[in-house]
């Protein structure tokens, strides 16, 4: 097993871990964190796969992608936190309502 593959597999592991938490956790902050863990997984995959060529010269493109991805993730997390605070201020709760009792305002 090469180091590259190890990194890639770790990345996919993080992705799955995040996905699991996203589904299982009901606290919204946990969900946002889960999303962040997932993005880290994807970035790890991208970065590790950059070493595609056996000679070891590194492909710069995935790095550019990772940087873009991080920017997007930061923005998304900020938006998520802002909405989270609003929800907390309005309802005093930090979880999503069940499918049954939504939209009864």
């Amino acid at each position: 097993m090469t180091t590259t593959l190890l990194y890639a597999l770790t990345g996919i592991g993080l992705f799955s871990l995040g996905l699991h938490a996203l589904i299982v956790q009901s606290h919204l902050l946990h969900k946002l964190l889960a999303i962040n863990v997932m993005s880290c997984g994807v970035f790890l995959v991208l970065a590790s796969l950059a070493a595609r060529t056996p000679e070891g010269s590194v492909d710069p493109v995935p790095h550019a992608m990772v940087i873009t991805g991080i920017v997007v993730a930061v923005a998304a997390t900020a938006l998520g936190l802002a909405i989270l605070l609003r929800i907390h201020a309005l309802t005093g709760k930090v979880r999503l309502p069940d499918a049954n009792d939504q939209l009864d305002d």
């Binding site: 938006l79 998520g80 309005l90 309802t91 939504q102």
Partner: peptide
């Protein structure tokens, strides 16, 4: 509204 915020959150995720 409450409904709008929670559904926005779900939408975001």
């Amino acid at each position: 509204s409450r409904a709008a915020l929670t559904s926005a959150m779900r939408y975001l995720l």
